[in-house]
């Protein structure tokens, strides 16, 4: 079997004593979008944090392009081309918008100018409000800063934890459009979403997590058609 761009196998991780995620496999290949859905407390965010290195996985292997990154600190994983956008506290509140974007290209500061133009083309507001402190922006604008900062990395893999959380319906639409657009440039996207319906619509593959394990893994279109999934996770959202 060919190795995917991001390949995580048999991940066990948790906070402190007990594990929350018990032996989960997830993979995404270049240019694809995979979404993890599931009920609250299923371990979705925990899983994505383990891949980003924010939480140290207790067991399992995580590889980017065949290179093992499991057990490395988050700052080194970032240098392997992984950009993680946390759900909350995902901007530097005391720093200006432009400074936030500078932090995005921290690893390759010489690339800042070119990437800055690209990111601002996607989110013109970031240029307009460049001198404003990120903490003073509205929730939606902050989310754009967070997203823009991650794109400044020009990552191979984008890890998104609930990118639509706290956004107005119109903005959710826009956000998913942008994710799709970014993905077309060849970036692999792995996201966790409550907004399962819309997320699966733009995804290639879907994972359903429950109680710390993968309950289903199938192409996104199949999950959307599955009566079981729609009843359990999509029904209330339709």
């Amino acid at each position: 079997m060919a190795e995917d761009l991001l390949q995580a196998e048999n991940i066990c991780v948790g906070y402190g004593r007990g594990d929350i995620v018990h032996g989960v496999d997830v993979s995404v290949s270049a240019g694809r979008i995979a979404t993890i859905i599931g009920p609250n407390g299923a371990g979705k965010s925990t899983m994505i944090k383990a891949i980003a290195g924010v939480l140290m996985r207790r067991e399992g292997s995580i590889r980017i392009d065949g290179q093992e990154i499991g057990g490395k600190p988050a700052s080194e994983i970032a240098r392997c081309g992984v950009a993680y956008v946390p759900q909350e506290a995902n901007v530097f509140r005391q720093l200006t918008v432009t400074e936030n974007l500078q932090m995005g290209s921290w690893i390759e500061p010489e690339e800042f100018d070119g990437r800055y133009e690209k990111v601002c083309a996607l989110f013109p507001i970031l240029k307009e409000r460049g001198k404003v402190r990120a903490g003073n922006l509205s929730g939606g604008q902050r989310q754009m800063v967070a997203f823009g900062m991650a794109l400044m990395v020009e990552p191979k893999v984008l890890l998104l934890d609930e990118p639509s959380a706290g956004l107005s319906p119109a903005m959710v639409e826009q956000m998913f459009d942008i994710i799709k657009q970014v993905n077309k440039t060849g970036i692999a996207v792995l996201m966790v979403e409550q907004n399962a319906m819309q997320a699966l619509k733009i995804s290639d593959h879907g994972y359903v997590m429950a109680a710390g394990q993968v309950a289903m893994s199938a192409p996104a279109s199949e999950l959307l058609d599955s009566s079981e999934v729609s009843e359990l996770y999509l029904g209330t959202r339709q």
């Binding site: 906070y15 402190g16 944090k49 909350e88």
Partner: peptide, 12 residues
């Protein structure tokens, strides 16, 4: 007072 993992979860 337990040792906390460095995690965003703790910021909540």
């Amino acid at each position: 007072d337990q040792e906390r993992q460095p995690s965003i979860e703790n910021a909540k």
